[in-house]
Simulated scan of single mutants.
Amino acid sequence: MATVSVALLLLVALTISYPLACRAADEDPLQDFCVALNANDPQITINGLLCKPAAEVQDADFASQQLGNPGNFSAKLVSAVNLASATTFGALNTQGLSIARIDFRPRGLNPPHVHPRATEVLFLAQGTLVVGFVSTAPQNRLFSKTIYAGDLFVFPRGLPHFQFNPDKSKPALAISALNSQNPGVSQLAVALFASNPPLPEEVLEITLGVGDEELDRLIKSVQEVISM
Rank of each mutant, 00 (worst) to 15 (best):
E56C: 06
E56T: 15
E56W: 06
V57E: 11
V57F: 12
Q58F: 11
Q58W: 03
A60I: 04
D61F: 07
D61I: 07
F62H: 07
A63T: 10
S64L: 06
S64Q: 06
Q65K: 11
Q65A: 13
Q66L: 14
L67W: 10
G68W: 07
N69V: 12
N69Y: 13
P70I: 00
G71M: 02
N72A: 15
S74T: 11
K76A: 12
V78H: 09
S79K: 12
A80T: 12
A80F: 09
A84T: 04
S85R: 01
S85D: 12
S85W: 01
A86E: 06
T88W: 05
F89M: 04
G90P: 11
G90I: 13
N93G: 06
N93S: 10
N93D: 04
T94Y: 14
T94V: 09
Q95M: 11
S98V: 05
S98N: 07
S98A: 15
R101H: 03
I102K: 01
D103T: 11
F104I: 08
R105I: 08
R105T: 14
R105Q: 15
P106K: 01
R107P: 02
R107T: 14
G108F: 03
L109K: 05
P112S: 03
P112E: 02
V114W: 03
H115Q: 05
P116D: 08
P116L: 08
R117C: 06
R117P: 05
R117F: 10
A118V: 14
A118D: 15
T119H: 01
T119Q: 02
E120Y: 08
V121M: 05
V121Q: 03
L124M: 04
A125F: 02
A125T: 03
T128C: 06
T128V: 15
V131K: 00
F133Y: 14
F133W: 06
F133Q: 02
V134T: 11
V134R: 07
S135R: 13
Q139Y: 08
N140L: 14
